[in-house]
């Protein structure tokens, strides 16, 4: 099977790859958001602790 054939998914490429693409983005966002929030939390908390010292 060639790459072109694989990507075309028998003519259903748009439906299949949009499904997989959106799923990937949503699942990735669910990891990135809490990780960023944690980083932000530590930055803020560190500032606060330094001020109170």
């Amino acid at each position: 099977m060639s790459l072109d054939q694989f990507l075309s998914m028998g003519g259903y490429g748009f439906y299949v790859w949009t499904s997989y693409g959106v799923t990937f983005c949503v699942l990735l966002a669910n990891i990135i958001i809490p990780v960023l929030q944690r980083k932000q939390f530590f930055v803020k908390a560190l500032k606060k602790q330094r001020q109170s010292l």
């Binding site: 998914m9 028998g10 003519g11 259903y12 439906y15 299949v16 499904s19 997989y20 799923t23």
Partner: peptide
Amino acid sequence: QGDSYRIIYIH
């Protein structure tokens, strides 16, 4: 359904 059924693996 041809290849369209492959959405099943995430759906």
